[in-house]
Amino acid sequence: SEEKKKAKERLERLGASSELARELLDRANGNAEKAERLLRKLL
């Protein structure tokens, strides 16, 4: 979806690899905010 694509791009801008961004979104069930929080914990 367009929303998921935007979320993935945002995670990548924050420093996630394409693969990591995809994994985070999967774990967050597509929830962009939750995926971002997970990423911030990792960085």
Rank of each mutant, 00 (worst) to 15 (best):
S1E: 14
S1T: 12
S1K: 10
S1N: 12
S1R: 11
S1Y: 13
S1A: 13
S1M: 12
E2L: 13
E2I: 11
E2F: 11
E2K: 09
E2G: 09
E2A: 12
E3N: 11
E3C: 13
E3G: 10
E3Y: 13
E3A: 13
E3P: 08
E3R: 11
K4S: 13
K4D: 14
K4L: 15
K5T: 11
K5S: 11
K5G: 08
K5P: 06
K5N: 13
K5L: 12
K6E: 10
K6G: 09
K6Q: 12
K6V: 09
K6H: 10
K6F: 09
A7Y: 09
A7Q: 06
A7V: 08
A7D: 07
K8D: 03
K8S: 11
K8Y: 15
K8G: 07
K8M: 15
E9L: 10
E9M: 08
E9I: 09
R10S: 05
R10L: 08
R10F: 08
R10A: 06
L11N: 00
L11D: 00
L11E: 00
L11S: 01
E12K: 09
E12I: 15
E12H: 06
E12F: 05
E12V: 13
E12D: 02
R13S: 11
R13C: 13
R13N: 07
R13H: 08
L14C: 06
L14Q: 05
L14A: 05
L14S: 02
L14M: 11
L14V: 03
G15L: 05
G15Y: 03
A16C: 09
A16G: 03
A16Y: 02
S17G: 05
S17L: 04
S17W: 07
S17Q: 03
S17A: 04
S17H: 04
S17Y: 04
S17D: 06
S18P: 15
S18L: 06
E19A: 12
E19H: 11
E19R: 11
E19I: 07
E19C: 15
L20M: 08
L20F: 06
L20C: 12
L20Y: 03
A21Y: 05
A21T: 03
A21E: 01
R22K: 12
R22F: 08
R22L: 15
R22E: 15
R22C: 13
R22H: 08
E23S: 10
L24W: 03
L24G: 00
L24N: 00
L24Y: 03
L25N: 00
L25F: 05
L25C: 07
L25Q: 01
L25H: 01
L25P: 00
D26T: 09
D26R: 15
D26F: 13
D26N: 12
R27V: 08
R27D: 04
R27G: 03
R27T: 06
A28C: 14
A28R: 01
A28E: 04
A28L: 06
N29K: 10
N29F: 09
G30Q: 06
G30K: 02
N31T: 02
N31F: 04
N31Y: 04
N31G: 02
A32D: 04
A32W: 12
A32T: 07
E33Q: 13
E33G: 07
E33L: 13
E33M: 12
E33S: 10
E33V: 10
K34F: 14
K34V: 15
K34P: 01
K34M: 15
K34G: 07
A35K: 00
A35V: 02
A35M: 03
A35S: 02
A35Q: 00
A35Y: 02
A35W: 03
A35F: 04
E36T: 06
E36V: 13
E36I: 15
E36A: 09
E36K: 06
E36P: 00
R37L: 13
R37W: 13
R37G: 08
R37Y: 11
R37P: 00
R37V: 08
R37M: 14
R37Q: 14
R37H: 10
L38D: 05
L38Q: 05
L38K: 03
L38V: 05
L39E: 00
L39G: 00
L39Y: 11
R40Q: 08
R40D: 05
R40Y: 11
R40V: 07
R40M: 13
K41I: 14
K41Q: 14
K41E: 12
K41Y: 13
L42A: 05
L42M: 12
L42N: 01
L42D: 01
L42R: 05
L42C: 10
L42K: 05
L42Y: 11
L42W: 11
L43Y: 08
L43G: 03
L43Q: 08
